[in-house]
């Protein structure tokens, strides 16, 4: 291969790093890409130890890699996904990448010269673009996951995700024999609010009440929008008495302060039904929702802006009245 006029310039112009060391890890060759990025001159570093010239390479790791290439005479690889870089170099996207250093895909190849001396060639490909795309993809996926869980208007959990969490929490509470309570609440006279202030007025009440309710909850509670103006809260590790106290606080937080919309002061209130998990089995969460719903119905029937806890026996009452 005496195509030096061809391979020489190509090697020098290549947008990848090419580095060759002998069996003692002494530098034999560095192409232009590596000389420029690494701020070294081949003439000055030829014959020196790779680990001296690039002092922050992972020496033990690279020695093991090179040893396997020399001994097995087969290539070895390193991916930026597992090791961001082998030789710490700046990259050519200093403004648009979140990483300071070039992401590198490396290939280590066995070489020999005419005299049979053995070398290792380290090829370094700049994978910074891939790294940047991957970062974008990850953050997009995170946003997607977020929007898949969240109700756009109120920033509560959406119904599907909230129900999944309810189901999981119910199974967990049953397994560890911990108390669990459910609140279902409804904005009173929502239709009337919408008629009087318009749908934007109604929406602003929903947004404000969600914010007030959220501020009073713990991190471990699950707050979701169940329907139009109906919401659910899963209170983990909470028995009925504690859940009623929380509900009373929520009721007061909503009714004590009017919501301002377009310079109008809108007075609103919520009715809350509370139930504690008592049933077991596959459908326990559905029974719980049914019980909280009965209690909510009774809160409405008893005059709204109040909390009613479910007690067994009310089911029969409800069935009688709806018959």
């Amino acid at each position: 291969m005496s195509d030096n006029w061809l391979t020489g310039p190509v090697l020098e112009q290549l947008n990848s790093g090419v580095l060759v060391v002998d069996e003692q890890f002494q530098l034999v060759y560095l192409n232009c890409f590596l000389q420029r990025h690494g701020s070294v001159q081949l003439d000055e570093v030829r014959g020196q130890s790779l680990f001296k010239v690039f002092s922050d390479v992972p020496e033990a790791w690279l020695r093991r890699k090179f040893a396997s290439v020399l001994e097995l005479q087969s290539p070895s690889f390193s991916s930026w996904e597992q090791r961001h870089y082998v030789i710490k170099l700046p990259h050519m996207r200093p403004m648009t990448s979140s990483s300071q250093y070039m992401a590198q895909n490396c290939t280590m190849l066995p070489l020999s010269d005419e005299a049979g001396r053995r070398y290792v060639c380290l090829l370094i490909e700049d994978a910074t673009d891939t790294f940047v795309y991957q970062q974008h993809l990850q953050s997009t996926l995170q946003k997607l996951e977020h929007s898949n869980r969240i109700d756009g208007l109120t920033q509560c959990l959406n119904r599907r995700y909230w129900e999944e969490q309810l189901k999981l929490e119910v199974q967990r509470a049953l397994r560890y024999q911990q108390p669990l309570s459910l609140l279902l609440f409804d904005l009173d006279k929502f239709k009337q609010l919408n008629d009087q202030y318009g749908h934007l007025g109604g929406d602003s009440v929903l947004i404000e009440l969600s914010a007030r309710v959220r501020a009073l909850l713990r991190d471990t509670d699950w707050f979701g929008r169940y329907g139009g103006e109906e919401f659910g809260i899963v209170l983990t590790n909470t028995a009925l008495q504690g859940a009623v106290e929380v509900a009373e606080r929520l009721c007061l937080a909503v009714s004590s302060l009017a919501v301002t919309f377009n310079e109008c002061s809108i007075q609103s209130s919520i009715s809350i039904g509370v139930a504690q998990l008592t049933n077991t089995g596959e459908r326990a969460h559905e029974v719980l929702i049914g019980q909280a719903d009965v209690a909510l119905y009774n809160a409405k029937r008893n005059g709204r802006n109040r909390v009613v806890a479910f007690s067994p026996g009310e089911t029969e009452f409800l069935l009688k009245t709806t018959d």
């Binding site: 097995l72 087969s74 690889f77 991916s79 597992q82």
Partner: peptide
């Protein structure tokens, strides 16, 4: 992952 790819590659 790095260990896995190394072993497989060898």
């Amino acid at each position: 992952l790095e260990m896995l790819t190394d072993i497989s590659s060898i």
